[in-house]
């Protein structure tokens, strides 16, 4: 039964990781433009980013 301690901690950590992922998504504006992202992934040629020097 003492495995319960470990299991509870592991389950909280896993759930916590999802919470962190959610907050990161919101913070980096990934929910801002859901339609745009779904269109962008359909382009055949990769969007070429030139590195500015």
């Amino acid at each position: 039964m003492s495995a319960l301690y470990l299991l509870v901690i592991v389950s909280i950590c896993v759930a916590g990781a999802f919470l962190a992922a959610f907050i990161w998504c919101v913070k980096t504006n990934q929910y801002e433009d859901q339609k745009g992202s779904s269109l962008r992934m359909l382009y055949d040629d990769e969007f070429q980013r030139e590195i500015y020097k």
Binding site: E32, D33, Q34, K35, G36, L39, R49, E50, Y52
Partner: peptide, 10 residues
């Protein structure tokens, strides 16, 4: 123009 990115929703 180095990069342009569109936000479709806004």
């Amino acid at each position: 123009i180095i990069e342009s990115r569109l936000n479709f929703t806004t």
